[in-house]
Amino acid sequence: MEQSNGPIQQPLHAASADPAFVPGLTGVVTPLADAPEPEDGPEDVVADVVADPDPDAVEEDAEEDAAPAAVAADGPVFEAADRRGRIVADAEGVRLSYDEEACDFRWDEIAAVESEKGRFGKRFTVTVHTPDRRWYPIEIIAPDRGHVAGWETELDAVLDAYFDEAS
């Protein structure tokens, strides 16, 4: 009879094996092929969704969408992008996007913003730290070294204008 001399190792349950393990990520919901159709039929459901909404509500939505754009235009705005990533910091907060992934942070959700120039001068890394000790880095590759210095200056101006260290 054989016996194991080492500890019993359980299978690893982590993000590398199961993306649902990462907090905040949601999986893609696909409809089941054998799911029952609604009693009204698909045509009736589409007709209900496509029906004309209240015109007053549409005007209010348009006014609400225009208001944040006016707020963002008043102060400094930082924007840096390459072929895969993008960083935008303005009056609303900081938005990071990389390929199809994106995250938005309001200024009250940010504990610190850290920027770093790469070793050879063309890589610019911005890391957003949250109060719950999580950090979200993104690296942008500049077309040349001069852009990185300009990006640092623009980001500092935005942080000085909107980021309140007391919060």
Rank of each mutant, 00 (worst) to 15 (best):
A35N: 06
D61N: 04
V88P: 08
R95I: 08
D104T: 15
P131L: 09
V94M: 01
K117L: 06
L25C: 04
P23W: 10
D99I: 15
A33T: 11
F120A: 01
A51T: 07
E100V: 14
G24K: 04
T30D: 07
D61A: 04
F120I: 08
P31C: 13
D48A: 06
D99T: 15
V113Y: 12
F21S: 11
A51M: 00
E64R: 01
D132R: 01
V49N: 15
V46K: 03
Q10L: 01
A70H: 05
D40A: 05
E100G: 05
F124A: 11
A73S: 09
L12S: 11
D52E: 09
V128C: 01
V49Y: 12
D61W: 11
E79V: 15
V88D: 13
D34R: 03
A111D: 10
A91P: 02
E79R: 12
F21K: 09
F124W: 15
D48H: 06
R134T: 13
E63R: 04
A51Y: 01
A33C: 01
V113P: 03
E114Y: 06
F105Q: 11
G121I: 14
R83F: 05
V94S: 01
E59C: 07
E43N: 02
A62W: 07
Y98W: 11
P36D: 14
A35R: 08
F105I: 11
R134H: 01
G41W: 13
A67D: 06
A102I: 03
S115F: 02
V28G: 03
D82A: 02
K122P: 00
T125C: 03
V113S: 09
L12G: 12
E101Q: 06
P42C: 09
P11E: 06
G118E: 08
P76D: 15
E79L: 07
I87L: 06
A89I: 11
E92R: 00
P31H: 12
L25I: 14
E114R: 10
P68R: 14
S115E: 07
R86G: 06
P38H: 15
V94G: 02
E100S: 11
E114V: 14
A33V: 12
H13M: 03
G75E: 11
D99W: 12
P53R: 09
F78E: 08
V126W: 03
A62H: 05
V113H: 10
G27C: 00
A66R: 12
D18K: 03
P19R: 11
E92F: 05
W135R: 08
V49K: 05
H13T: 15
S16F: 06
S97I: 13
A67R: 07
R123S: 06
A72F: 09
E109F: 05
V22P: 00
E109A: 08
V126R: 02
A15I: 13
A69L: 02
P76Q: 15
A70I: 14
R106S: 12
A112D: 15
A62S: 09
W135C: 01
D18T: 11
R86K: 09
H13A: 06
D104L: 02
F120G: 00
